[in-house]
Design a protein around this nucleic acid. Structure first.
Lengths: 348, 348
DNA sequence: TGCTCCCACTGAAAGGATTCATCGGTGCGA
DNA sequence: TCGCACCGATGAATCCTTTCAGTGGGAGCA
């Protein structure tokens, strides 16, 4: 019990390789990094030694002086299809670079800052984060040390780059669509606002969902309609339950505008379960996740091109790593994709 | 251009904290790690200094001597709902431990070994991997250095732990279900086998999909039916296209058994697009991803409890970290969830 | 009072890779 | 033929934390 249970063989180090190849450590380091000043002969020697010893550089040791060649992604929810699209876009953009992606998902009851910190602690060379609810001042401090790209924040910063969809336009399109179809009892279902209201709220840095809700309210007001906003957790089954409640009410809505597709899918399931369909209740989501276009779902949604957001995030980060210092702000276009789930209000 | 563009303030080190608190580095280290032999007074001093300097230990430096308190997950496809369930289970199991999870997704055209290596290079304390198609001999070598849990491998190893669903039972249930409903033209749609056939194939280490296909063939043979296996990429849209082909054939199948739910969802979309429904073609999937139970989808599928697999993976890894050395093999139960997408064969 | 033991704390070494200043040798121009 | 520049390669310093062997002082016991 006290003696080593399984002998873990010591993996070979750069020193071992140097000895094996009969050169100095520094020389080996140069070969690995493809640095300048290496003769073909030595490169061959060293490469052979590396092969023989199955040497692999330790990223941890490497990170202490140089770079870790790792980009960190903070993702609030691994299962979320919209975030998945972002990751896919990023993966694509990273394909021909020496950088490796690691994802730090949020633990249970964890806030985004925990995961961001954990990435920073691991000396990643850059961070992409999707946390609309962390203090911008804190983010700026993080960005002083590690290049940072924030997705889905409408605030402006001098230190980190931001990427958003055009939430205002997207929500406008949704409302124009629904109002144009003749709907008047339109309910907006979205996630709970941050509570207690953080001190930095109300600044320009409104979260995407807040912007969408604001547009909803504006358009309802302009149309002379009574807005009704229902808050749920970020979770389809909560949306499902809330919708069942709405549908049971005497003057049930003829349309539901969900703050995102996860909620919208939950809404759809409640509508179906209540024996209703698109002719009874129109449903519109936001994000245009892949399943939305499935013929059995056919969810009308706003496409803000998650793939492109991810690609762009990586591009901005790589630019930073190459020396850019001014902050950049990128906004992706929002396009409404009309599908089966929304239609003209039914004559009663 | 040559002078530092943005001054990146040097983050404070343990040395800085030691100076600030007027103690030695070793003392600070002890406080951080909650080690034995620290007076309350010193702890208070050090804690205060840490706060003042916003000190955070560098995982890279830490990993060089001690542990990194990081568990690495190699995930072939971030978007895959089944894998998502595994990650969710793991997150849950990790909640009250000091360990942080990082996920290494596969890059484009990358094999699992790249991601596994990349995790090992980062000195994670343990690895959970889901790569049915890497050489077991190579895996054993990895496992000599880093505790390793493989999900979805039916081979046995002395060095790494394995976790699988009961693919044989699951597939049996599917086939019994379909045959019991009177289906005779049952097509099996699954992912392409590894090609060229790797030298280690055919050993006990068959991949889950291979097991499922084998059971399909056996049951078809026993029933005196002609098996028909269609291979596609791991991608709903490929399954969609392949299904359209099947449905166009003169003696179209009355049932399709898809190797996993991603494929099954693609199949369903093709069926719907062809103007057909469950009465015409029964569809069964595998994994029971969350969307399968959506009333608009209603996909019959095999539940192998992804959540539990993830939880178990973490549990096994933590056990290893606490000293267990014998390999463990865990098999989750498979349960068929019958839903709308499958039904009795229609009288013609 | 003197000795031992224990406890809190310290200094230095270790861990693996990169980087910087330096060095020896070669080739070229004068 | 001499000197200079340059190229390939090296040794040592450095990055930050943990660990191990000590050190000094105080308490307890005889």
């Amino acid at each position: 019990m006290s003696t080593e249970p399984t002998r873990r063989p010591r993996p070979s180090t750069i020193q071992d390789v140097a000895r094996e190849a009969g050169v100095s450590r520094a020389a080996v380091s140069k070969v690995i990094r493809n640095a300048y000043g290496v003769s073909d002969h030595m490169r061959a020697q060293v490469t052979a030694a590396i092969e023989r010893l199955e040497y692999r550089p330790r990223v941890a040791a490497r990170a202490m002086r140089g770079a870790s060649f790792t980009l960190g992604f903070e993702i609030p929810q691994v299962g979320n299809d919209f975030l998945t699209m972002i990751v896919d876009g990023a993966t694509e953009a990273l394909a021909d670079t020496p950088y490796q992606m690691i994802i730090a998902p949020l633990g249970r009851d964890q806030k985004g800052d925990v995961a961001i910190n954990s990435l920073a602690d691991r000396q990643v060379d850059g961070i992409v984060a999707i946390s609309p609810r962390v203090d911008p001042a804190w983010l700026e401090r993080v960005a002083e040390r590690t290049p940072l790209v924030m997705i889905g924040r409408h605030d402006r910063s001098d230190r980190y780059d931001t990427i958003t969809g055009d939430d205002r336009s997207g929500a406008e399109q949704v409302m124009s669509h629904l109002l144009g179809l003749g709907h008047r009892r339109i309910v907006h279902l979205t996630i709970h606002p941050s509570r207690p209201e953080p001190p930095w709220a109300g600044q320009a840095g409104a979260e995407p969902h807040v912007v969408r809700t604001a547009v909803y309210r504006e358009r309802m007001a302009v149309a002379g309609l009574e807005p009704q906003v229902v808050h749920t957790l970020f979770d389809g089954s909560e949306a499902h339950a809330a919708t069942l409640g709405l549908l049971a009410s005497p003057d049930r809505p003829t349309a539901i505008f969900a703050g995102n597709d996860t909620l919208a899918i939950g809404v759809l399931s409640a509508v179906a379960e209540a024996g209703l369909g698109a002719r009874d209740v129109s449903v519109v989501g936001y994000d245009d996740v892949p399943i939305a276009r499935h013929p059995l779902i056919g969810l009308t949604s706003v496409d803000q091109s998650g793939i492109e957001l991810g690609r762009e995030a990586v591009r901005l980060l790589l630019e930073r790593l190459e020396g850019r210092t001014e902050a950049v702000r990128y906004e992706a276009e929002a396009v409404l994709r009309v599908r089966r789930s929304s239609g003209a209000v039914r004559e009663e």
